[in-house]
């Protein structure tokens, strides 16, 4: 009886992990930024908030990253496709300039890809 229960629990957990991390539609906190707006992105405890940012194509935008996590993981934010990167100061806002780009989805993340976000240019 206990054996079956434990096994079921284990299998249930696996299904749960697969569903939650991979299959579940990712609900993102998304925010749109106009060129003249100021958007603050907080880096804390392994996530960017918001982690989905919409900007207009062909307009340069400045994002303001606010890093609250002193671990070295959060130190850099990289936009590899745009060749933009910035070293974030702790407990301070760091402006990151995003040049005017074509529409598309550009991921951004920390060096180890634990912090992740998406820049939607549309």
């Amino acid at each position: 009886m206990l054996d079956i229960l434990v096994n079921l629990l284990g299998l249930g957990l696996i299904a749960g992990i697969v569903w939650w991390f991979w299959l579940a539609p990712k609900r993102h906190q998304s925010k749109a930024v106009e060129a003249q707006d100021k958007l603050r992105i907080v880096a804390r405890d392994g996530v960017y908030e918001p982690d989905r940012i919409r900007i207009k194509a062909g307009e340069a935008v400045t994002l303001h990253f606010y890093r609250q996590d002193p671990t070295p993981c959060a130190e850099w934010v990289l936009f590899p496709d745009l060749e933009v990167s910035a070293q974030l100061a702790v407990n301070e806002e760091t402006p990151v300039k995003i040049p005017a780009t074509e529409s598309g989805e550009y991921p951004f993340h920390c060096q180890m890809q634990m912090y992740r976000g998406t820049l939607l240019v549309e």
Binding site: W20, F21, A24, K26, R27, R44, D45, G46, V47, D51, T71, M114, R116
Partner: peptide, 19 residues
């Protein structure tokens, strides 16, 4: 504590980290 809070926060965002 930072591992646990980090893990919780990441979990809510459907992501998992070293934490």
């Amino acid at each position: 504590g930072h591992f646990f809070s980090g893990a919780m926060r990441a979990f809510r965002h459907h992501s998992a980290t070293m934490d």
